[in-house]
Every structure is written in C-alpha cells, then in structure tokens.
C-alpha cells in the first residue's frame, strides 16, 4: 500500500509534523518571536546575526502619509507585512520613474497606490490570523550573482530546517516567471534540495514534478554549489537558538555584498522540502533525537546534522 511506501521512505506527513513536532517542540508563547518579523529582526541583531536593514515602520494608518518620505533617499526598498506569511503582501520596489515607483515586475505604482497597499497590510489583510498588523519597509537585498540565471524575476532564498538546534535538511527556492517572482513552491518556484555535506543542489522539483533546468533561462539548477553554505547553516542554527523553538524553518538570502542574511524564521515549516530533496525527514529527525545531548557548540551541531544527512541520503 502506498502509505507503507511513504512510511518506508521516511516521509513526514502533515499530521505527524503537527502532532509530534510543531505542537510538541514549539511552545505557543514563543510563536510571536518568529511570527512578528520586527521581533525576529531584533532577536537576530542582538545575537549579532545579519538581517536586512529596517528603514521604516507604520503601526497606524495615520503614519502612512510619511512612510514614503522616510525612504525618499532610496531608489529601492521592500514593503512587507510584519506578520505576513508565504510572501503574501510583499511589494519590491526596484527603482523610481519620476514620481512613480517601479516594482520588480516592471509595473509602475504611484504613491497613493503604495499607501493603499500599506493600509491593507495594517488592516491585517496579509497577516497570519487576519489581525491588525504593521507595515515595514526594509532594504532590498541584491541577488548573489551565482543565482542570477537559475532564479528569474525574484529573490531566491535558502530554507534550512533546524530541529532542536541541529540542521536537518536544506533547499533553495528559485523564483520563476510563473511564480511571479515569489520563492513559493506552490506558485511555481523551483525547489532544489541541497546536500548538507557538499552544499550542492542534488535534485529539484517544480509544480511537484522533477525538473533540472530553470524554464525561463534554461540553465541547469542541479549540481550548483551554494556559496558560504557552512556559514548559512551556522547562522540558521544560531538564529533558531534564540527562539526557544525546537522545530523551525530558517529562511536566508544570499546578498551580493553582505553574504547570508536572515530573512525570517518559520515555526510551521512546510513539508515540500522532502520532495525537493527526494528524502524523508523522519529518519533524520529520529536519528537526531536518539543522539541528542545538551551543551553542544554550534559547530558540533552543524557537524552532527551533516553526519545524520550522510547516513540518511536521498532515495535512489
């Protein structure tokens, strides 16, 4: 039976993820640390971890009038909901055209459209639970040259799942034209699994089907070595250490100038990373739980994660 095959492949289903991992290891009271991007940013800054620079925040509607003034000296920036999820509600501004703002898609947006969008954010339109939210503007990260041809129309990120302080699995999400520039797998971005040991992409899926090339640029997305991969794993582990959460997805972006930067943390990381890696999470999670000890250093834990990944490789 197919359930049996999934089980033998070590695939983690959504019921077990909720019951045995997120509900068990992520205490509800720590959720705000990752659901609120301002808190995550503060947390990471305090730990000396790199985050995108915060330019402006609007907590209330009346502050919207001045939101654009606060970034008058910049040509590019990103507007985001503080409690957003899955990249919803994000506006990436890449330049100016007279009074209008130029979005990443090339479309123009005037100041009043910008304010309306920010008002929607504050009203909670894009917030996780629909509650009133805040709008934040932060610096736009510039895609590392390595990704320029394998990710099109948007900023790719690297997702690392960290369980009890040990990295378990990683993938990179590469936007495409039909994902609308978003690094969102269910919208058509490419998910490419990364070997924790070598830091190279091993396997990739798009729309839940295997793929090897970016359909826009026709460039091979497999076998690509992710720069600074060890640093990425270490930053992900350090960031999750600060959250008191046991099962977290850390999203990082590789900036051209600054290297790996923490974008956000997720207390309910998705399961598609297993498809992108062609590997189940369960054997790795079990192995980590069996050998877990308190007081290991970050380097030791990254090494442990790599060992576990080596002994639980992707399916043939």
């Amino acid at each position: 039976m197919i359930f049996r095959q999934l089980h033998d492949a070590g695939v983690l289903g959504i019921n077990r993820r909720n019951g045995s991992y997120t509900l068990k290891w992520n205490k509800r009271r720590f959720y705000p640390l990752v659901d609120d991007k301002l808190q995550t940013k503060r947390l990471c800054r305090e730990a000396g971890l790199p985050v995108p620079k915060l330019l402006a925040v609007a907590h209330h509607h009346f502050q919207l009038a001045h939101l654009l003034d606060q970034v008058a000296d910049r040509d590019d920036f990103v507007l985001k909901p503080v409690h957003g999820a899955m990249g919803n509600g994000i506006v990436v501004v890449v330049g100016r055209d007279g009074d209008a703002l130029v979005r990443a898609s090339g479309k123009r947006m005037n100041a009043s459209e910008f304010r309306y969008h920010a008002a929607g954010i504050i009203s909670g339109l894009y917030a996780l639970g629909g509650q009133p939210d805040q709008a934040m503007v932060e610096e736009r990260l510039i895609v590392h040259p390595l990704f320029r041809d394998i990710a099109t129309n948007g900023v790719p990120d690297v997702r690392v799942v960290v369980f009890r302080g040990v990295p378990v699995m990683a993938m990179t999400r590469l936007p495409t034209a039909d994902s609308g520039g978003r690094a969102n797998l269910h919208q058509g971005a490419i998910g490419a699994g990364i070997d924790l040991v070598t830091g190279r992409t091993t396997y990739a899926v798009r729309h839940n089907r295997p793929c090897s090339r970016n359909p826009d640029s026709n460039r091979d997305v497999l076998g690509v070595e992710i720069p600074h991969f060890e640093t990425i794993l270490e930053i992900a582990v350090r960031a999750t250490d600060r959250t008191n959460l046991g099962y977290v997805g850390a999203d990082l972006v590789l900036d051209e100038q600054r290297g790996p930067v923490i974008l956000e943390l997720n207390a309910r990381p998705g399961l598609a990373i297993q498809i992108a890696n062609r590997a189940g999470l369960m054997p790795r999670l079990d192995a980590i739980e069996r050998t877990w000890q308190a007081g290991r250093s970050v380097e030791e834990r990254v090494a442990l994660g790599r060992d576990v990944a080596r002994s639980n490789p992707p399916l043939a």
Binding site: Q5, L6, A9, N15, G19, N208, Q274, I275
Partner: peptide, 18 residues
C-alpha cells in the same frame, strides 16, 4: 486528533518522492 499517520492527500503530494 492523535492520528499521526498520513492523510489521503499526502499520497498525491509526496508521490514525486516515490
């Protein structure tokens, strides 16, 4: 609530792995 097994839709979702 205590059922930790797969959902029926997990079959289509993770078929690519198999």
């Amino acid at each position: 609530g205590g059922y930790m097994g797969y959902r029926l839709t997990d079959i289509t979702r993770f078929r690519a792995i198999l």
